[in-house]
Design a protein around this nucleic acid. Structure first.
Lengths: 337, 337
DNA sequence: TTGAAAGCGCTAACAA
DNA sequence: TTGTTAGCGCTTTCAA
């Protein structure tokens, strides 16, 4: 902290007004005579005065702080969320407190967060125990789970329609004439993986097909590579793989092409999920399902600001469409999904 | 904020002690009788008490807040910095305030930051006017520029040895037998680009060669692609390109391979800078110069904590080695650099 | 429109 | 070891 040296008292003395007048001069809409305000601002400028946001937060009960929790940055989906969400919140006059968590210490981190009197919490790739979520709700702090949900939790959630998106992939692959369709799962504890898996199987079932093979990749780059190796280790190999996120799909493609010498999509089709920027890079040119980050962020911000202003926390679950983006890693059926 | 309902006074009443006893019970190393402390903690648990970090910061003059400013997240180098640095600071008991800036509003954002009484500022891919840096120094707030520096500024800096790293690339390419060596520059206003360009030219000069062509890509993906297109538009084409960062190098390779049908490295060698994770992905397998993020982050943290603790801000400039990582996008000379 | 005064929740002397 | 007291810098009544 190192002393903000100049306080409103100092400014008051120099401008020959009371300390409360200084406060008003820096409060939009407060009643101050124009010339008084001008004099105060001048004195403040001379002294290099900056209002102390902490003191303001204490007395007014509004910290203008939003906490953002996330677990990893390797998957490009999250950095971009971070960037766009913080830009938006900044524009609304909020500041973002960033916390990296690991599965297991999430509740502990939330406790830490709440000490800072944040006005809202966004959890990306992280979840909160429902007892803690309830506590937040009672305290009046809105919680939004981004790209995750916990059905029984009072926390709100913003997700894409993972079931429908994955259903679309399944349908697309079957109609593309694939016979041995495999699935590489993400983190089995996540709602995204559950939904993607469910939607995918559902589509296969509608065509009277069952999945040819399934391996868990855990949403990590190395996990995806391992999964691919084990999936393609036998004599008979899949002719299509749906990978639960793009991040794994990249390592899967590397293994298929470089280690196994397979051609994509001639020998095997690959489809991912998320549509991160790298998916459109020509080196991969990955067919994938787009999570519309922009819209998801907008929804997150809307829930947050609405609940902060209304002082009432109600559970909301926003599900946004998640369209298939067809690129070069998949054999095509005659028509789209 | 929404009222943290329970205060230390409430806990005091329930535990039948004074309010200051409660404060002590939550201050490591304060003098409290073990059984008193236990009684207080029990009461706190019953009530769901959490100390108010804002109030604590106000009175103690220590906010335990560190601000992190950055401009973009597309270049994977920065998200990873963010992740690792926040994890480390968290472990040290600090919380991270995140601010996204654009060139131009950086000083404004710093003013906003200082209202939160942060104890330190880390600026990644962003710089601060030297007058403002001086102001920070006077206030006793250490500022570390990460991957940037401004010679005249009182702010500290942590960079890799961009001159030497780029010199190494130049040497490597010349010795690899390349005759028409081009350079795609990043953001011309950045110290990284200046140093990389200088080191590169210097190495060429040592071999009696001048650069075959030079285009500015501005460190962006699309800018890199454009630069490649213009560089390779004539009849005679470069047989090697040094690209000022990996992020651009990926788009350059896409253009070379997909749009122009060139083979890398047979027709043209490509070398990048940063060694972001994607550089080692087999789809690119990019020869590049490694910025050792881990070490840079360690240095940043060391400067920060040392200056916060000593309450004295002195300018420090740490320059870390930046070794060439040879992968598959470059024709090889007989021996290394 | 302005100033005086109270107090947000806490820490840090100082006495007891 | 404990309680009392005095603020940190600010916003917000309440009178003037």
């Amino acid at each position: 902290m190192s002393k903000n040296v100049v306080t409103s008292g100092d400014v008051a003395r120099r401008a020959r007004v009371s300390q409360s007048a200084v406060s008003r001069a820096f409060t939009p809409g407060a009643s101050v005579a124009p010339e008084t305000r001008e004099r105060i601002h001048e004195a403040a400028r001379d002294l290099g005065y900056r209002p102390n946001a902490l003191a303001r937060a204490m007395i007014s009960g509004r910290s203008r702080l939003i906490a953002l929790m996330t677990a990893y940055m390797d998957n490009q989906f999250y950095p971009l969320l971070l960037e766009q969400l913080s830009r938006r919140l900044q524009d609304d006059g909020y500041s973002v407190l960033l916390f990296m968590t690991d599965p297991g210490d999430q509740d502990k981190v939330v406790q830490q967060i709440m000490q800072y009197q944040v006005e809202g919490i966004v959890m990306a790739s992280a979840t909160m125990s429902s007892t803690l979520a309830r506590e937040c709700a009672q305290t009046g702090i809105p919680v939004v789970m981004f790209n995750r949900y916990v059905p029984s939790s009072p926390a709100s959630s913003v997700t894409s329609d993972n079931i429908e998106g994955a259903r679309c992939v399944g349908d697309f692959l079957v109609r593309g004439g694939h016979k041995r369709i495999a699935f590489i799962a993400g983190d089995e504890d996540s709602s995204t993986n559950r939904d993607r898996e469910a939607g995918f199987y559902q589509a296969l079932a509608q065509h009277g097909i069952t999945v040819w093979g399934r391996v868990v990749g855990g949403y990590t780059f190395e996990g995806g590579a391992e999964a691919a190796r084990s999936l393609f280790s036998g004599d008979e190999k899949p002719d299509a793989v749906f990978v639960a996120n793009d991040h794994m799909a990249f390592s899967v493609m590397d293994v298929l092409r470089q280690e196994l010498g397979l051609r994509v999509p001639e020998d095997v089709s690959v489809v991912g999920y998320d549509d991160v920027p790298q998916a459109s890079w020509k080196g991969y040119d990955l067919t994938t399902v787009s999570q519309q980050g922009e819209a998801m962020i907008e929804a997150t911000q809307a829930i947050l600001t609405e609940q902060i202003e209304s002082q009432s926390v109600v559970q909301r679950a926003v599900i946004l469409p998640s369209p298939l983006v067809i690129r070069g890693t998949s054999r095509l059926p005659d028509k789209g999904c």
